[in-house]
Design a protein around this nucleic acid. Structure first.
Lengths: 116, 116
DNA sequence: GCATTAGTTGCACGATTGTGCAAATATACA
DNA sequence: TGTATATTTGCACAATCGTGCAACTAATGC
């Protein structure tokens, strides 16, 4: 048994289509980038300033990103502040990169350093 | 000016919707995972063994992944061998993680190590 | 109570997408 | 040449998705 079976299930588990589906729309990544640039939790109204679309659409897009695990919502009074889940998002991307990198033993990307 | 504008353009540039669109379909990620598990370039026929769908659909999906930059195609005679572009894919995921991680100065994911 | 503001949800419509079948293209072999 | 195999492409259809409008819910202030 040459190929480690652990990496398979890990890679399969990390390849969550819901996340990529969420990031597959230009309006949504525009919202995500806007949130990242503003460096602060934004309300739906504030996030809507990023692009000329209806507030209801923005609300739906933010909900999609929240369901995908990229954002988290915090209700404050009558407004909701959406913020990026940095630790989880970054970790997921790094884990995915590591899983893809370490899946094939004869991988040309073979890093010279350690695990991290 | 507190927030570095360099990270913005970097993040925007890395948030390529075509890549995420390609990874947003379960059949395509199934093909990608199958390629990763087999640890070798596969023909369309071989890749089609991963799931019970028509070969033409597999061909189209592989083309989508190729156009997204995840796979590369090498024509050998009358068959085409698709393989994962490990270095580029892994680097893109790591760059995206770094860009997201380093975008906001007051980022809770604040890494203890250096830049890389 | 009523009015206002913030956000979500129902509905409809147009656009995109995934799929299978058949036809077309390309390469190898007799 | 003709035949067989591998892959791609045209076409049609169903399903999903993004969008805007209106209606609805929730919370604040009069």
């Amino acid at each position: 048994m040459v190929k480690p079976p652990a990496c398979r299930t890990k890679l399969r588990g990390l390849l969550n289509t819901r996340l990529f589906k969420a990031l597959g729309d230009p309006t949504r990544v525009g919202l995500l980038a806007y949130l990242a640039e503003r460096c602060a939790p934004l309300t739906v109204n504030e996030a809507a300033q990023c692009c000329p679309i209806d507030i209801s659409v923005v609300s739906r897009h933010l909900a999609v990103l929240r369901d995908a695990g990229v954002l988290e919502a915090a209700k404050e009074g009558r407004e909701v502040r959406y913020s990026i889940r940095y630790p989880e998002s970054v970790k997921l991307l790094r884990d995915l990169a590591d899983a893809l990198d370490g899946c094939c033993p004869i991988n040309p990307t073979k890093r010279k350093g350690g695990k991290r």
